[in-house]
Design a protein around this nucleic acid. Structure first.
Lengths: 295, 295
DNA sequence: TTGTACGCGTTATCAG
DNA sequence: CTGATAACGCGTACAA
């Protein structure tokens, strides 16, 4: 111990990890595509892991690159367990690919995609989307438009557009999709202004996420349209900013804290007991009704 | 290779790391305290590393826990290099502690704190704070208040309050600090309303960061105070949201992209050549003047 | 081209 | 309880 102190000796983490099989690392897989929601989830998980002895290794799993590349890089980092967050195609490919690649590494997926072959903490965003549509329809909105960036996969796929189309069809109203060429209020403003110039103008916007809802709200206000009375806005995800803005925005709030805490709990229990059976739970998002859709 | 395919063999990352000395991991040290700026920096670094073969291991270095605990946990993860972001006390302690603990691990600090004993990409926020104060004073503001959460270390320390006090003293105006009990617009609103009830009311707010500036802007608007004409607001950090909001906010913008890219470049070059001499560079923030302080 | 032995630095085990 | 030694799994160098 004197020698340790005198020579400034430090254990080699790699050798220790090789011997013990424990690296102290949890892999966090997410896609590179930025959104404030994803950023908040990342930060939340960072906070939770900050209270433990574990550290977080963040890697991205993106379809942009080849699967092999993404997976290989992700699997090259010595993790004791993996949490995959909103890994869309990842999850689909996972059943086929993952078991070959890291069959013994504890794995939990988290978010709106899941596979029954794996442990997960799912969020039933479809239920939330249905609720949001019911809310808009029951408060008298008829010309509801779905707002989404033109290059998003959510234009045609996903629970949001599915709920939108089915609810509109059931109510007998026409579909109206507004494609934006960006998510800033300036960009969204251009597209909304163009759409509002046509008639009939929409009386409600179902925005693909809160970033877009916030941008739309700011853009509409600048266009002289009164959010909440002239037009309703609903977003998805429930980020803090929707509450803390001039006109609080109705949103389908994902249970960030509970989702993260539960996913980490599942993962830790699997890390302690690798033979533990799958743990699967679905959480419900909650529709938070605020001024943007009350009027 | 057939056997590899057939048996689903995967190299053991720990053994590989032990042998090669390379884990493919870059340690990212930051404090747990959340701000949107920190979150955006984290996300930016995630994006940069996502384009490389490296992954990011995020650990927090916080004073809340004992130094030993934080350092030990951080150093237990097998990283090839370390980027320390806005590590305040860390940096000060680093000169004394770090060399004992990980003398051979490439290290670059990034942000508004640095130590001449290490490589760094610094941001001269004092210059930005001075510029912000000059801007407010030169546009006729005299009753400038400094807004900061009551429990922040920035109440008394740091370049913001230093610039504020010196510039106010030089101009012959009185100091006025508004302590908030939170950073949401609701919380900030209570404290601002209380202060505005007293006279003389401030004609400008120098907010400790953009989160607070945004919250103040929303809160003041709700109080019926017209931001930009009745009162000016200036924030720090330059997060995207300051531009994309009803009344765009003047801010001291930190060069996030350049800072992250440069820090990573420094680190990679040190990882390739451990004998490389220290690399040190100071970046200047830029004052972005917007509507919140024009009127 | 194919195979074998050694070393990386630690932890764990077993004999003294 | 202390001290020597095996083993973790991969990369590499050297021999066949």
């Amino acid at each position: 111990m004197e020698a340790v102190e005198k020579l400034g000796y430090r254990p080699n983490p790699n050798a220790r990890a090789l011997m013990t099989g424990r690296s102290g690392l949890v892999g966090f897989w997410m896609c590179l595509q930025y959104s404030r929601y994803r950023s908040q989830v990342l930060d939340r998980m960072r906070g939770l892991l900050g209270q433990t002895e574990l550290a977080m290794a963040v890697t991205d799993i993106d379809e942009e690159y080849h699967w092999d590349h993404s997976f290989n890089r992700s699997l090259r980092v010595p993790v004791e367990g993996i949490i995959a967050f909103d890994a869309s195609d990842s999850i689909q490919a996972l059943g086929q690919v993952y078991d070959r690649l890291a069959p013994n590494t504890p794995f939990v997926s988290m978010g709106i995609y899941w596979s029954n072959a794996k442990s997960y903490v799912g969020v039933d965003l479809r239920a939330g989307a249905d609720e949001a549509m019911d809310h808009l329809l029951s408060t008298g909105r008829r010309r509801i438009a779905y707002v989404v960036p033109f290059n998003s996969s959510l234009v045609e796929e996903g629970v949001r557009v599915e709920a939108y189309r089915e609810k509109m069809a059931a109510a007998g109203f026409a579909i109206d999709t507004i494609l934006t060429h960006g998510v800033t209020s300036a960009e969204v403003g251009v597209d909304l202004a163009a759409r509002l110039a046509e008639s009939p103008a929409p009386d409600a916007l179902l925005c693909m996420n809160d970033d877009l809802a916030l941008a739309s709200s700011v853009a509409l206000t600048k266009l002289g349209v009164h959010v909440g009375s002239d037009i309703a806005i609903v977003g998805f995800d429930g980020i803090q900013e929707t509450e803390d803005c001039p006109c609080p925005i109705t949103t389908v709030k994902q249970p960030i804290d509970e989702m993260c805490a539960l996913a980490l709990r599942f993962l830790k229990s699997q890390m302690e007991d690798p033979l533990r059976p799958l743990q699967q739970q679905i959480l419900k998002p909650s529709l938070i009704i605020r001024d943007s859709s009350k009027g």
